[in-house]
Structures are given as structure tokens and as C-alpha cells.
Amino acid sequence: MQTLYPEIKPHARHDLAVGEPHVLYVDESGSPDGLPVVFIHGGPGAGCDALSRRFFDPNLYRIITFDQRGCGRSTPHASLENNSTWHLVEDLERIREHLGIDKWVLFGGSWGSTLSLAYAQTHPERVHALILRGIFLCRPQEIHWFYQEGASRLFPDYWQDYLAPIPPEERGELVQAFYKRLTGADQIAQMHAAKAWSTWEGRTATLRPNPQLVDHFSEPNRALSIARIECHYFINNAFLEPDQLIRDMPKIAHLPSIIVHGRYDVVCPLDNAWELHQAWPNSELQVIRDAGHAASEPGITDALVRAANQIARRLLKLPPEEV
């Protein structure tokens, strides 16, 4: 069983001004001359942390992590202004150009898989390969499953806490009801809604209970950016046309990909990954039998570390014993 690489510190930091009013936090670690890989975090709104760079062999990879608009160390915090899927695709291009990278590997999980696909389909010539986890195609049926009805039937106890900030008469359109509070002037109501939304996600992300992950999601600053930005994206159908990511798969059909998905993923059910794999002849799907959604689950971590090594070996033409 592969585990994360030891903790390392960034050797470079960039504060990159993009569309007003946003300034992105970007850092680099690993080998400056290594294979470029960009870690594309989830949410949208979650941000990166010290674990994000530890899926990659620092002797082989030039590791780029960044916080998307409105979250993590990027500013302004939890901002919805000029914040859409296509702004983030432009930001990735801006980062690539700023760092002088010709092509890179995309590594994205959950919403990070959504954004990775959107970027690759827009700029296929800039992508070596993709490593994707917990596939989220961001279609209305997936939003409905997790935030309106579906996952609620598996976790009725957690669901009651999610519903708590919303009066019964508004529960027929929960994303709309949360959006009203998350964008309203009442800061107490806003934080109450944010913690309920984000805690629901943290509680259901793992096959086995993980109190540390729940605490991570419910930390007030993080909960606010996750809830506000996710709700903003979801109420706008992630700024995607109907079934756009599957429709546009021919644009990246030639690119190699390893898809890792937990068998018991409740946040993003396995049929997302299965459908993507069927539309992508050059992809390899690995279903992790004892895992849910989170990258921190041992089986998922093992598969992702192995996938990163496999991609590096293939692209750098290294024999197995050197990886």
C-alpha cells in the first residue's frame, strides 16, 4: 500500500493577479526541472493544503499547487465576482504561461476533475495526461442527488443537520434556499448555512467516519468559501452547457488518463466515472472497492500515488525501478 510522500515545503511562491478583483496564491515544490504537474483542488472553494503536493515523487515532478478564485490563500476570500468555470480555465492558462510551462499533467479530484476536463477540452495541446479522482460531471442530476434528494436517504441523520438552516416551506429547492442565505446580508445566517452545507459534505465524503475531515470542512473560514462558491456554481449549472464534458470528449480522446473512483462514493456516485470511462477509450478506470470520495482514504491515496508514478514513468521513459 503506497502512502503519501514525506512533507516538503515550496521553493517558490507567486501571487498572481488575474481578473479583478482576484489574486491567486500559487506555489512550486519538488524538482524545478521535473515533469510539470498541477494539482487542481476540489470544491469549488476548498483550496490546497500541505497534503496536496505529497501525491508526487518530488525527484520526478515539478509540483504546482494553487488556490482557485475566492478560496484558500487567494484573495478576496469567498468572492463570487468574476468567478466561473471559464474564469478558472483562463487562470490555469495564465499560471502555465507565467511559469513558462509548455505542457503539464493535470491532477484533479471531485470538482478538480470537472475543471481538469474543462481545461483539457479547451487546451488539449497543453496537456500530457490526466489523473482524475472522484469524477464529478457537474450535471443537474448530480447536484440534485447530493443536495436535494438521493444521498439524503443514505444519511437521514446527517441530512437533518443539513436541512436545519432552511425553513420547511423552502426545502423544495434547497440549492436556491442556501444561495439566498449564503449571499444575504445576515452574516450569522450566512455562517449557519455555510457550516451546515460544508459539514454535510465532510460527513459523507468517506466510507468510514473521519472526524478530522469533518472538522477540516467545518472550519468557519473554509466552510464559508466552500459553501458560497459551490452554491454559486451549482445554481448556475457550473457554467456548462448540458452534458458538455461528455459531449466534448472527442477533443481529448487521444490523451492518456487514469481515473480513480471509490466504489462507495456517495458525493459523486460511481456512474459518473463509468460514463466518462466509456466515452474515453484512452482512459484506465480503477474502482477502489473499500473507499468513498475522499483522497485521504487509504485505497484512494494508494491508487493516486501509483497513478502519478505510472504517468511519470511513461512520460519520462524511465524503467520501473527508477520510480
Rank of each mutant, 00 (worst) to 15 (best):
W104V: 02
I95R: 01
T114P: 07
V105S: 08
G134L: 10
I131M: 14
S113K: 05
I101F: 04
G109I: 09
E93A: 07
D91H: 00
C138Y: 00
G134Q: 03
I95T: 09
L115D: 13
H128P: 03
V89H: 06
R96T: 02
K103T: 15
K103G: 15
I135C: 13
V127E: 00
R94G: 06
H123T: 09
E97S: 09
P124F: 00
R96A: 01
R139T: 15
L115P: 10
V89C: 10
H123M: 09
L117D: 04
F136S: 04
W104C: 02
T114S: 11
R133H: 15
F136A: 10
W111R: 01
A118T: 05
W111A: 12
R96S: 03
G108A: 11
L106C: 14
I131D: 05
L99I: 09
L106E: 12
I101D: 08
I131T: 11
Y119R: 01
K103P: 15
V89P: 13
H128K: 01
H123N: 14
I95H: 05
I131A: 07
I101Q: 09
R94D: 06
L132Y: 05
H98L: 13
A118Q: 04
I135E: 13
E97H: 01
A118K: 07
L132N: 12
G108P: 10
H123I: 03
G112I: 13
E97T: 03
W111T: 07
R126D: 02
A118L: 07
S113T: 11
A118Y: 01
L132P: 15
A120E: 08
K103E: 14
K103A: 14
H128Q: 05
T114K: 03
I131Q: 09
W111S: 05
A120D: 04
A118R: 01
